[in-house]
Nucleic acid binder design. Structure first.
Ligand SMILES: [Mn+2]
Ligand SMILES: [Mn+2]
Ligand SMILES: [Zn+2]
Ligand SMILES: [Zn+2]
Lengths: 126, 126
DNA sequence: TCCCTTATTAGTAATCGTTACGATTATTAT
DNA sequence: ATAATAATCGTAACGATTACTAATAAGGGA
């Protein structure tokens, strides 16, 4: 009896491995480029499909920063992110501090602003 | 002498008025629908173009929540937002508190999670 | 007021990140 | 090994947003 509706494929395994090692929060296209050497016939759609499956499995998380591409993160623990408005790179902020001044003291990046978004169920839907 | 490179149009004025009154954080499409009565020949492209201009002028702000559409907010003061995972509505959170427990005490929505994104210039770009 | 410059518009095509489809291939249970 | 059916690749489609173009209109100056 198969508890898991998913099968194991080299492609999906490699995508997960890349995300577990790579801390740069790569996009689907970044991952596709990295895998092209090992999988010359890889389809970009395969990368997207497997990223969605891995998110559904709770093994990775998707990050959106309002930019054109979505970014993916192999670290599913709760942590904040820092985005450079110049080079657009996405960095981890180890600090869980809430005061922006205190967060600034824990990193060499120059923090200019912070956006907080809360998610849940609204009173109308409850 | 005209200091402003922009001219005044009924369309842009109406878009701004809607955003100043409407606290529901409407999408471009929402605004388009509301204006169709008064401007039957309105083009959706006109809405998008003027929203970008108003953002550039600092009169409104664009909000992205990883969903399909961007949302727009006539309130440019710093404030947090709450998104219902069920109905996808976007609400204001008046509270500036950082502790999620304290924020929960100020609203009737059921808060499940919070995402913080910091923006600035990274140490490599400095 | 009229004229002129040009920002703005409506309509439509294009862009582009992502998803869906369909025939073939690969995984896995029996 | 066989059968059932995920997964793959290649390609088409999707959808929110942007770009293009000819016509329109705002608004400054004569
Ligand atoms: Mn991260
Ligand atoms: Mn708001
Ligand atoms: Zn940078
Ligand atoms: Zn709701």
């Amino acid at each position: 009896m198969n508890e898991n509706k998913y099968r194991n494929t080299k492609q999906r395994e490699q995508i997960l491995n890349i995300l577990l090692k790579d801390k740069s929060h790569p996009t689907a296209s970044d991952i596709y480029d990295k895998m092209k050497v090992q999988f010359p016939d890889l389809s970009l759609g395969t990368v997207y499909r497997n990223l969605n499956i891995l998110v559904e499995q709770g093994k990775i998380q998707k990050l959106d920063f309002g930019s054109t591409y979505d970014h993916y993160d192999g670290n599913c623990c709760y942590h904040s992110h820092f985005v450079c408005r110049q080079c657009k790179k996405v960095y981890d902020l180890g600090c869980i501090e809430d005061d922006i001044e205190k967060v600034q003291q824990t990193t060499n990046h120059k923090i200019e602003s912070c956006l907080k978004k809360y998610y849940g169920v609204c009173e109308n839907c409850l």
